[in-house]
């Protein structure tokens, strides 16, 4: 029995339980460094989390059958993980001062691509539509000080 097959047979709940236990223990350890009025409550919660996590893990371990409730892992990882990455890059671009409109357009096109649109004209038209729509709604109608580039900033704030 190789280690690989062992992992494959482990149920998602066993992983979840293990993860929660680790998080709970870590948070409990952190909590002990807080002052006398501030540590008890988070410590108790962390400990409860660790115990509940362990219980979930153990129960999953004991249950014989495989849990299929997760569905096809590849499909949704392709969607959610790719989307998170695209959006994370988008926020990084905003943080780096690359403006709002440009990165947003790129991100929207990437999101459309992820959801399965391949037609170039649709990517372009819908991408522009969403970008302009969101920008007009927040940047102009709602006058949000978006991190837009300076030339545009001067234009819309006057």
């Amino acid at each position: 029995m190789s280690e690989n097959s062992n992992i494959q047979r482990l149920k998602p709940d066993a992983w979840l339980g293990g993860f929660l236990t680790v998080v709970g223990l870590w948070a409990a350890r952190e909590a002990t460094s807080f002052d006398e009025f501030s540590w008890v409550y988070p410590f108790a919660l962390s400990a409860a989390l660790a115990v509940l996590g362990a219980a979930i893990g153990l129960r999953a371990f004991k249950a014989g059958r495989n849990d299929k409730s997760m569905g096809d892992a590849r499909v949704f990882l392709q969607g959610a993980v790719a989307m998170t990455l695209v959006l994370a890059l988008w926020v990084t671009a905003l943080d780096q001062g690359l403006g709002y409109v440009g990165p947003t357009f790129v991100a929207v096109v990437a999101l459309l691509w992820i959801t399965g649109i391949r037609d170039r004209r649709r990517l372009l038209v819908n991408g522009l539509g969403v970008t302009v729509g969101v920008f007009v709604l927040f940047g102009i109608i709602f006058a949000t000080p978006l991190p837009v580039l300076e030339p545009l900033q001067i234009l819309i704030r006057q």
Partner: peptide
């Protein structure tokens, strides 16, 4: 698909 992109940005 467009809804998804729009909602994400909104």
């Amino acid at each position: 698909e467009t809804m998804v992109a729009a909602i994400a940005l909104l």
